[in-house]
Write a protein that binds this DNA or RNA. Structure first.
Lengths: 70, 70
DNA sequence: ATCAATAGTGCAATAAAAAGCACTTATCAT
DNA sequence: ATGATAAGTGCTTTTTATTGCACTATTGAT
């Protein structure tokens, strides 16, 4: 799956803000287990979960048209 | 939820490419019922579903840091 | 090398997404 | 206004995400 970028986005932002998984779980309302699973690449979170995490970190999810990179 | 933008992105792109829900369901491998539910705002799709739809339409999901708009 | 903090995992229960099917509603051209 | 195409809904089963708990592993500082 191509979700590594999303995972990296969350992890990087979380680290930059000096927020632990536990803090983010509390802040976002997402279960700690769910967050751990997502960040370790073992999850398939729902949009609601992705939004909760994004909101807590001041980020939003969007679709971007892929550019033709040759 | 703030997923209206994602819904609009999919619907708009799909319309622009003249693709029906049924065609997109087939192309993406997402069930027709699931797509209908998402587009009608009644769904909470998984990341896998969002990725499948995006891929079929040449789009990718990304997190963007929200700008402070005051 | 030890301790503390943070991150990752196994297991189990509950809630909910995914999917197909049959049906209804809306849209639009003729 | 009829027919055809596309979109939306009710119902159901199966699969899986979410969650908590208890535990292990990793990391980093002293």
């Amino acid at each position: 799956m191509h979700s590594e970028d999303l995972i990296e986005a969350i992890k990087t932002r979380r680290d930059n803000l000096d927020v632990t998984q536990e803090m983010l779980a509390d802040l976002s309302g997402v279960g700690l287990r769910t967050l751990k699973q997502f960040e370790s690449g073992k999850g398939n979170p729902t949009l609601e979960t992705l939004n909760k995490l994004g909101n807590a970190l001041g980020m939003e999810l969007s679709y971007r048209v892929k550019e033709i990179t040759k």
